[in-house]
Amino acid sequence: MSEELVKLSGVQKAYRRGKQSVPIFETLDMSIEKGAFLAIMGPSGSGKTTLLNLLGGVDRPTGGSITFQGQRVDNLSESRLAAFRAGHVGFIFQFYNLMPMLTAAQNVELPLLLTSQGSKARKERAATALQIVGLSDRAAHKPSELSGGQQQRVAIARAIVSDPELILADEPTGDLDRETANEILSMLQELNANYGKTIVMVTHDAEAARYARKTLHLDKGHFVEKDLVA
């Protein structure tokens, strides 16, 4: 029997726009199993990124609950929520979000600064993560010296370096050409298949969604179609 990693129960989310409250999710239920590779698609404003933010503890629901490995995370204090993100979630952003002044290795090492590991252990782990994404020879390069695809691979290495259970990818190929996008998606597939990482990927791109094991469609805050991809 597969193990449940994340569970959303009756999640509500609304944003305030001036004096008005704009609802995104009125009641959203969702369960993500450990080892899943899930693509979430939907039109702009459907709530894809909001869902990703809620899953990653970047945003809080206005109602309902979110549990991670059976523990509620939506009501954690700011510092505990930060610790939760540091320990369990890896983020991959559309625009890579690397620190421009740091080398690839230093960027990858960043999440490890939140652990108790010493400098030597951190550097070794960062080197291993870069090796997994095939960028060992670019370790000393700064983001400006890397191509878009290489930068996204560094971002992936950063996302996996602290060995989180959940990887959240927000349009990870949105800024890349098709060929490079396919390389990145293959890499995510490999992380899911070989390293057992649970991946939730938000995308507009149906081609990208094919790399996931399962695709969910969001529209106006509701899942409208399920299990398009097995």
């Binding site: 993100r85 983020f91 979000n97 960043l110 999440p111 939140l114």
Partner: peptide
Amino acid sequence: MREIATLRAIGFGG
């Protein structure tokens, strides 16, 4: 701002 928010998202404190 994006760098700071990224660090915060990764788990860095305020």
